[in-house]
Design a binder for these strands. Structure first.
Length: 488
DNA sequence: AAAGAAATCAACCGCATCTTC
DNA sequence: CGAAGATGCGGTTGATTTCTT
């Protein structure tokens, strides 16, 4: 994959980040002894010192390296260097095809859990895997190819169906840790045997190769419905590939569907008001406005941390999120990660529904945007593919009370689809009332756990999907009051 | 051949968690 | 039990190489 080598004497000495605050030596880099810690690329001499230290003292206690060896490196740097380059059990060189397919498999199950993935790939480091993945998705994105092979989607779908068959959702199930959850979708190693990673070669037709009618037909096949496709980006303007990737997942697992613009860019036509719904439409169009950056972060079930501290305006002291904006509400912390409920189909698409309804109510007077009747999200997707307006099922539900008797807050926490991960900094969760603020806010929603989206029971037999849409309606009613009721 | 873009990779940073005292 | 230190993790950055025009 790369002609560059890592570690050892073949390493490019001049490479690496420079530090203005700490000592950066040149040449031999024999920076040993007391004093400021060195940063930047490691030299062979430093490597030798570190190796010698590990031979003597073993791994660990990295902060003692400087003390015992005189190496002017911080413990973290020593650990990283050892783990990523000096460990004797490291594999060098490019990933093999088997490793690549394994990474894809693991990522489909774990998301960006690089360290855990590295544990499954002997001799490989989390950094390697991370770099590989980032490179890969960028490449796939550019090629307009799906990030995962069909097999992955199929396995997840199958596993999901199996889990649904096993039994009903229990609270215990929802409290499983992430590993047990991901096990629900465990993809047998052997099932990947047919998958060959072919850089630059799609495993299937690109969305750009297919007419919309084909998409429609494909959508009728549950095994392909969620074949997430990357947008083809205009080469001159690209957002981070991960943003696009996960926005794509977002869109494709919601009622929104990727539709190409005349430039072959990827948009979600459900939200024809792109400016207001950019966050949800997987807006990777280079021809359209690119709103504030959307950071990639995994909103996985694995990440309870996404529930804390990053949700900005919503505070636990408030029984309900602010009524000022549904946008705020959308960013409220989840009571539990969505994938803690791996078989909960009713979770699907509610976020999009909320956002959609919110935006419809708050700003849009364009009736053409109102959806037509759709019996299932499945059909919604089909309709969207055909660029037809549709109406979500909950729009028709008239039940005054949630069947679960939940408050709006609980509804919106329990039913928010896919944990929406934290955003960067407090500014990211600011919610403004003007349209631009709303737009930016939406853009800050992050979806980085494709399997989470894939596992929401969106695979055809999602019969429960519409049954609890009244819950959403209740929640919106509670939050928006008459405005919402008036728009019914 | 030159320039710019893209790819690659090592390393840093901040934060979370674990461990020790 | 809390503080401090150690460790681990994931995201990001920036230098260099490679590719493309």
């Amino acid at each position: 994959m790369s002609s560059m080598t890592s570690g050892g004497d073949t390493r490019k000495i001049s490479k690496g980040r420079q530090s203005s605050s700490l000592v950066e030596e040149d040449g031999d880099g024999e920076n040993v002894g007391e004093g400021p810690l060195k940063k930047g690329p490691w030299t062979s001499a430093e490597d030798a010192i570190l190796i010698e230290y590990v031979k003597k003292h073993g791994q660990g206690n990295w902060n003692a390296v400087q003390k015992y060896s005189g190496l002017a490196r911080c413990g973290k740097s020593c650990r990283l260097r050892w783990a990523n380059h000096l460990r004797p059990d490291l594999k060098k060189g490019a990933f093999t095809a088997e490793e690549e397919s394994r990474i894809i498999e693991l990522h489909s199950k774990m998301g960006n859990k690089w360290a855990r993935m590295a544990a499954e790939l002997p001799g490989r480091t989390d950094n390697e895997i991370k770099n590989y993945w980032n490179t890969r998705i960028k490449r796939m994105q550019r090629a307009g190819l799906p990030i995962y092979p069909d097999e992955v989607y199929q396995r997840i779908h199958n596993a999901n169906q199996e889990s649904q068959n096993v039994g009903t959702l229990t609270n215990e199930a929802s409290q499983h840790d992430d590993l047990s959850q991901t096990d629900n979708f465990d993809i047998q190693d052997g099932e990947f045997k047919n998958f060959k990673f072919c850089p630059g070669l799609s495993h299937g037709p690109s969305i750009f190769d297919m007419p919309q009618s084909s998409l429609f037909e494909q959508s009728s096949d549950t095994s392909h419905t969620y074949n997430i496709l990357f947008p083809t980006m205009h080469p001159s303007k690209r957002r981070r590939e991960s943003e696009i990737l996960y926005n794509s997942f977002d869109s494709c697992t919601s009622n929104a569907v990727p539709v190409l613009d005349p430039y072959g860019n990827y948009n979600c036509e459900r939200f024809s008001d792109h400016n207001s719904h950019a966050a949800l439409n997987g807006n990777a169009s280079s021809s359209g406005p690119i709103f504030g950056s959307m950071k990639l972060e995994l909103p996985s079930l694995q990440y309870p941390e996404t529930q804390h501290g990053s949700w900005g305006m919503y505070t636990p002291t408030s029984p309900l999120p602010s009524l000022e904006s549904v946008d705020t509400l959308i960013q409220s912390p989840l009571v539990e990660p969505i994938l803690s409920d791996p078989v909960s189909p009713q979770s699907c698409g509610l976020l999009e529904a909320i956002v959609y309804n919110s935006n419809t109510l708050k700003g849009s007077r364009n009736d053409s945007l109102l959806p037509e009747t759709t019996d299932t999200p499945y059909q919604a997707i089909n309709n969207s593919i055909l660029n037809l307006p549709f109406k979500t099922e909950w729009d028709e539900q008239e039940e005054p009370n949630s069947s679960l008797g939940q408050s709006a807050a609980s509804v919106l926490t329990d039913y928010t689809p896919v944990s929406i991960s934290s955003v960067d900094g407090p500014q990211s969760v600011e919610t403004t009332q003007d349209s631009s603020g709303k737009k930016e806010n939406l853009n800050q929603i992050e979806f980085t756990r494709p399997d989470a989206l894939l596992d929401l029971g969106w695979f055809g037999n999602n019969t429960e999907y519409g049954s609890d849409q009244s819950v959403l309606k209740d929640a919106l009613s509670a939050l928006l009051g008459e405005d919402f009721q008036g728009e019914q």
